[in-house]
Design a protein around this nucleic acid. Structure first.
Length: 371
DNA sequence: CACACGTGGTT
DNA sequence: TAACCAAGTGT
């Protein structure tokens, strides 16, 4: 059981933390220019599982493309995905548009102003709801993100595993005790700034930490133990063939299904190697794979083409839960064929379509190995 | 509740 | 290099 501080100690902590934040907080971050809920919301969604330096250029571009919640609600999905291309976790932006439409249509364009109200919007969970409620609407509610887990975990030597959903309750309760009711938004942001400077996961610098005197795990040199976080499973290995077929009208090109990984993004046709045979342990020779791919290309796309393997190692790409290995097969046709599936797309207009990183790697491999 | 869901940076 | 980390949410 965690022993909570006295009210005097809590107030001392708030003063110390906010004094540091006023001096050394990252006030220049573009989303801190004002406390407009739309602005705060866009930044908080982008920052989910994503580092500040990555987000900055995306945030600026996004606010130019979609300056208001109405502009976001009315945007074409492909435009949205293109604006998000490279940031990852693409359901974030789809959910954001749903929430924008909810606010515009169900709330007459007026934001819910409370933690509980904000949580009802698609894509806004307890963290984001607390961030917006505290920053834009001054509600004293703790925003528990990875930074808060590190800071609070080390401050109080919390033994619960932060991977477990129920642990959030404990952190939330402690955060709500600590948060400064006069400056809730600044308090939450100060915790985040602290968590990404003096209290990082590795190479933290407690010697210069402005709140070091409050850190229980610093007293006995056990900071390394907190927060308690069980290891994640290794990504599962999956092998594909990727098919680069060029004809007079460009490359064979296809949009992914509307749900699941990389939903609605554009990619060359891919076949999982195990799709050829139900036996996942089957060892396929290169000739067999090529022939099977040609057969399936005809059946699925209506394309008759002779394929050959591109030299070099396969393209690999690691996701949170998967590791893709893509062997590239190439083929050329001299006359355009009508397609059962997919489209022909010229190389110079391909980049108008949102594409995932793995497709970029495939382009790079094609460019380097065949000019 | 466990797992799906991206990408870039660090060690 | 493999492993881990970075302002989480939906199902």
């Amino acid at each position: 059981m965690i022993e909570m501080w006295s009210i005097e100690k809590i107030e001392d902590f708030r003063r110390t933390l906010l004094a540091w934040y006023d001096e050394e907080g990252r006030a220049s971050l573009p989303w801190r220019k004002n406390q407009d809920p739309y602005r705060v919301w866009v930044s908080e969604i982008m920052l989910q599982q994503t580092q500040v330096n990555t987000v900055i250029p995306y945030f600026k571009r996004f606010m130019t493309l979609f300056p208001t919640i109405t502009a976001l609600a009315d945007a074409e999905e492909q435009t949205l995905l293109k604006a998000w291309e490279g940031l990852g976790y693409y359901s974030r932006v789809r959910n954001m548009q749903k929430a924008a439409q909810q606010v515009v249509e169900d709330y007459q364009g007026v934001w819910p102003t409370t933690f509980e109200g904000l949580k009802k919007l698609t894509g806004i969970g307890p963290y984001t709801a607390a961030a917006i409620a505290s920053i834009a609407f001054k509600e004293p509610v703790a925003a528990i993100d990875g930074n808060a887990y590190r800071v609070l975990g080390r401050l109080f030597k919390i033994e619960d595993d932060i991977r477990q959903t129920k642990t959030w309750q404990k952190y939330f309760a402690i955060g709500n005790q600590l948060i400064d009711p006069k400056r809730p938004g600044d308090f939450n942001q100060a915790i985040m700034d602290l968590g990404s400077s003096y209290m990082t996961a590795k190479n933290y610098d407690t010697a210069h930490n402005p709140i070091k005197e409050f850190i229980a795990s610093y007293e006995d040199g056990t900071e390394d133990l907190y927060p308690v976080k069980s290891p994640l499973a290794k990504p599962k290995q999956v092998s594909y063939v990727g098919i680069a077929v060029v004809g007079p009208d460009g490359y064979l090109w296809e949009q992914r299904p509307a749900t699941g990984l990389l939903a609605n993004f554009w990619l060359m046709p891919l076949y999982a190697i195990t799709d050829f045979e139900s036996d996942p342990d089957a060892e396929w020779t290169r000739a067999e794979i090529i022939q099977a791919t040609e057969t399936r290309l005809l059946a699925d796309y209506g394309v008759t083409v002779s394929l050959k393997a591109l030299g070099g190692r396969p393209v690999t790409h690691v996701y949170s839960h998967l590791k893709w290995t893509v062997t590239i097969l190439t083929g050329e046709i001299t006359e355009t064929m009508p397609l059962k599936r997919g489209v022909w797309r010229q190389r110079d207009v391909l980049n108008d379509d949102p594409q995932p990183k793995v497709q970029e790697k495939i382009w790079q491999r094609l460019n380097s190995l065949q000019g």
